[in-house]
Computed example of a mutant assay.
Amino acid sequence: MAVIVQQVQDCHFITAIGCFNGDDCRQLRQVIADAKDQHIRHVLVDCERITSVTTEALRIVLSQTTHAEATGINLLFYHVNTKTQEIIDKTGLDSVLHIVLSLKEAYQYCKQHT
């Protein structure tokens, strides 16, 4: 899978493409660590082009969500496709992850939580 990271002002934008697996989550972990070091408050993950998610990835995402919150970083997922949303719902992670429909909503969330 491809993971593309861009920084714009006080946000890291991650675009995930293909199967989201443990290796990709290790990249997410690094992005969160970098955000903390650079005093960046928001990490936004575009999930529109994720085709599948592994169980290992879901465990790591849960862990990283908790870690991000503890360090004062907003970790948001947006453009989550129907297939990925069903997996998140089945695992109960929908109650833990911050998921919004669009980049606009993610941006508004960040503005409210700055």
Rank of each mutant, 00 (worst) to 15 (best):
A2W: 13
A2N: 15
V3K: 10
I4S: 13
I4E: 15
V5Q: 00
V5W: 01
V5S: 09
V5A: 02
Q6P: 09
Q7H: 07
Q7Y: 12
V8L: 07
Q9H: 14
D10I: 11
D10Q: 15
C11E: 07
H12Q: 10
I14F: 08
T15P: 08
T15C: 12
I17A: 03
I17L: 09
I17R: 06
G18H: 06
C19E: 07
N21P: 08
N21Y: 03
N21I: 01
G22F: 00
D24Q: 01
R26Y: 01
Q27H: 12
Q27N: 14
L28C: 00
R29S: 00
R29C: 02
V31K: 01
I32P: 05
I32F: 05
A33L: 06
A33S: 03
D34P: 01
D34E: 04
K36W: 03
D37R: 11
Q38H: 07
I40S: 10
I40E: 02
V43P: 08
V43Q: 03
V45R: 04
D46A: 02
D46T: 02
D46M: 05
C47H: 07
R49N: 02
T51V: 04
S52M: 10
S52Q: 06
V53E: 11
T54I: 01
T54C: 02
T54G: 06
T54F: 05
T55D: 08
T55S: 12
E56C: 11
A57C: 04
A57R: 06
A57D: 01
R59E: 08
V61R: 05
L62Y: 05
T66R: 15
T66E: 15
A70D: 13
A70Q: 15
G72E: 08
G72M: 03
N74P: 06
N74H: 12
N74K: 14
L76F: 01
F77W: 14
F77K: 12
Y78N: 08
Y78K: 11
H79T: 00
V80M: 01
V80E: 01
V80A: 04
Q85V: 07
Q85M: 15
I87T: 05
I88R: 02
I88G: 02
D89S: 09
D89T: 09
T91I: 13
G92Q: 06
G92K: 07
D94E: 13
S95M: 13
V96T: 05
L97N: 09
L97I: 04
H98M: 13
H98A: 11
I99G: 10
V100T: 07
S102W: 09
L103Q: 04
L103A: 08
L103M: 04
L103H: 04
L103D: 03
K104G: 13
E105M: 04
E105Y: 08
A106F: 00
Y107V: 14
Q108K: 14
Y109P: 10
C110E: 03
C110G: 05
H113P: 14
T114K: 12
T114S: 13
